[in-house]
Write a protein that binds this DNA or RNA. Structure first.
Lengths: 203, 203, 203, 203
DNA sequence: GATGAATGAGCTTTCATTCAT
DNA sequence: CATGAATGAAAGCTCATTCAT
């Protein structure tokens, strides 16, 4: 490898790095201060870059957030939707949502915490952030269909939908905050599924 | 009564009310824009008062929010705590929390929506906002005691606590957003209590 | 006059002054740098005021310019229009335009220089800056009417209009740049009128 | 010729042309936005080139403008000067200026419009832009000489000079804006010459 | 206690320019 | 020579807060 190659790769590396550096710095600040109180300057201050450099990569902090989501969270919504279509009964339906959601929360805990703690802001600008928390309408539709097809019990769909979402979110949040182990996740999935299934059945 | 008298009395009235006027204006803006994106200017703009007047009553928008909470929500936390102490079994325990919480959400729907939609911000600055949503630790302690005293089933207290909080919050939010009637509230309390009790029992 | 009165008047005075101070500073910079290259910061730098103070009075540099015009130039367009309507022949028509235009250029030489040197920019934002230089269409219409009514000779109205405007502007500009005396103005008016009348007659 | 060759030759072509490409792009933007509001970025954005490339050819947008003028307008000033030296009387003197000036305006209408619409900016930086509009001093000197030599009537040279310049500029501007035909140009030259000659004679 | 003009810190964003490749 | 990412100065503007009245 000669000198020129070295330099080229160094430059290229930098370019790719800077984008990641900004995203990483953004995630840190979003977590610390919340989305709406984070400024572009906060992000670049958390970096060695010059202020102008930010705008070589992003137009706004929102783009940073979207990029952070895109890098990790784009599929979870699709997965949740796909899985619940295949459910044959209440247990499967609930499990199909809880399992991947908790896995996501474990694997992308920072993103999960940001979204979970800033639902308001995320909803405000994000048309296409495909997270369970934001897909209540889609979930509700599938619940209505499930009820019609006798796969799910006949429970008020608004409540049905709300409890799945809030219980999953609440337990996941508790888990992540305590940075629990994989075993904890497994037991939490079990707890959560049992809880919701039994609760729904009883009403 | 001549013109001048009229003005004077009006002004005096204002003097008494300016605090309330600011709080009211603040609540409106907090609801509309979210806490962290509300500025002091926003609040005074939503008022006939001069900007300086704001600082005769409050040091910051946060103080306005605290005042808004204090005016209506100070007792709910105490009530929740008091009631659950008296519970003799799981049903009573859950009901003791759900009933007043839903009543509060109905009677102070604006405050409830603000807090519910801005949990992050509220937590950030408020050491002393006595709402259910923020009293997980206290609730958890009582759950642990309840378990020890065999009043409550032996369920992981973190999960126990989390589901009460998240289910109540989620259903209440759904209710308020749809501005449902008193009857709806009653049925929601019933749904919620049954759901949680059955869920907890099953695990 | 007691202490309080003194203070009040001082405050009021300041308030009025600051507006004028900004306008004055703006005119200076507009003259020096041209409109489009003047920044709001240039204007406040040319002042003892804080940057925020600017925005208590104006939204942009354009508003400063409009204010500068409004203070002195708002009537000149109307006057020119009114006077030419009364003209009974070519001499009167030309004189009716040249005389007030030159008076204006003398009495408001700074404004005149700014407008004259920044026609492009002025036209860009100003719907209602009623100066001769910007009222070609209105002037042309009156010329056409004048020709129809046999008051004016039958000359291409575009050219007719253009020569009045450009000769007046050119000579006025020359005058102002050399800051000539009142006598000079009188002789310039005479020169200008004779020149245009004779020129028009000959074609 | 394979793909690579093609690219190479294209690139070489570009190398030769990049200067012209930038100038052309600059003229477009100067026309559209005015000189002072044009940025280097605007110019390179109007190009396929990289921003750094700009600085291989020019130090600033002003240099682009000068180059644009140099490419087309360098001779007009010299021509005007040369021609008026040969004039034997007033008619010839005026005609010697009007004719080439109008031809120039027709043949280089973009340059003419830029200069005509941005006189202020052009004057600001350009010591050596050889256009009639900017050569008043030289013209005035020749007028003074002409008067001394009894070739021209004894009229105030400032006014003499000003009317030639402003009338020519005004009529040419009108012409170009309406993109008139060659015949129009001829008749405009005649109008202009007659007008000035008669006007001057009368005073 | 009410007023609102003044303040200057601090934000977003664009820009001219450099320089490693 | 061409490239375009990096830079930091500087623009427009808003804000919380003060303070003379």
């Amino acid at each position: 490898m000669n000198k020129k190659d070295k330099k080229v790769s160094k430059r290229e590396e930098n370019k790719k790095n800077n984008r990641s550096i900004i995203i990483k710095a953004g995630i840190e600040i979003f977590l610390k201060k919340g989305i709406s109180q984070t400024t572009v300057r906060d992000i670049i201050r958390n970096t060695d870059l010059a202020s102008g450099t930010f705008y070589n990569y992003f137009k706004s902090k929102e783009e940073v957030l979207i990029a952070a989501l895109d890098e990790s969270a784009i599929e979870i919504g699709q997965e949740l939707r796909a899985r619940r279509k295949k459910a044959k009964n209440l247990e499967e339906f609930v499990y199909s949502q809880i399992r991947p959601f908790f896995d996501f929360a474990r694997d992308h805990s920072e993103i999960f915490m940001i979204m979970s703690s800033n639902l308001n802001d995320v909803q405000a600008f994000s048309v296409e952030t495909p997270m369970m928390t934001l897909e209540l309408e889609s979930l509700k539709e599938d619940i209505i269909i499930g009820i019609e097809e006798k796969i799910l019990p006949d429970v008020n769909p608004d409540y049905f939908c709300s409890v799945i979402q809030s219980v999953a979110e609440g337990i996941a949040f508790t888990l992540v905050r305590k940075s629990m182990s994989t075993e904890d996740i497994d037991s939490a999935v079990k707890f959560c599924t049992n809880f919701i299934v039994a609760g729904i059945r009883s009403v």
